[in-house]
């Protein structure tokens, strides 16, 4: 049986909760970053690039590369690798800069 990081460190996490990704329900653990929760659910990309629309997800995982930007609860450009998941968070795939509504 595959051993999870949680088992390896003998973690005793609290009660899991739900967040949504583009409307789909995903289970997250207390303390988990949004990126970790998405990875745990097999989701690797949650943003498309500004110019060519290519898929992006977490790259550095430590807040440095800004590749993992996501729209969280309507606010674009949140770094999913740093942001702890909270019950009920609604993550939506961010297209480009995520500010299309401001265009004139």
């Amino acid at each position: 049986m595959a051993r999870t990081p949680g088992e390896l460190v003998g973690a005793r996490p609290g009660t899991p909760f739900e967040i949504t990704v583009d409307g789909r329900t995903v289970t997250a653990m207390p303390g988990q970053s949004i990126a970790a929760a998405l990875w745990g659910a097999g989701i690797l990309a949650w943003r498309t690039t500004r110019n060519t629309g290519r898929p992006r997800g977490a790259f550095c995982g430590i807040g440095q590369c800004y590749d993992c930007l996501a729209t969280v609860n309507g606010e674009p450009n949140r770094r999913a690798c740093l942001l702890p998941a909270r019950p009920g968070d609604a993550i939506t795939t961010q297209e480009g800069h995520g500010h299309a509504g401001l265009g004139v």
């Binding site: 500004r50 450009n77 480009g96 800069h97 500010h99 299309a100 401001l102 265009g103 004139v104």
Partner: peptide, 9 residues
């Protein structure tokens, strides 16, 4: 600022 769509012409 962060990259934005054309919002100041």
């Amino acid at each position: 600022t962060e990259p934005l769509p054309r919002m100041v012409r």
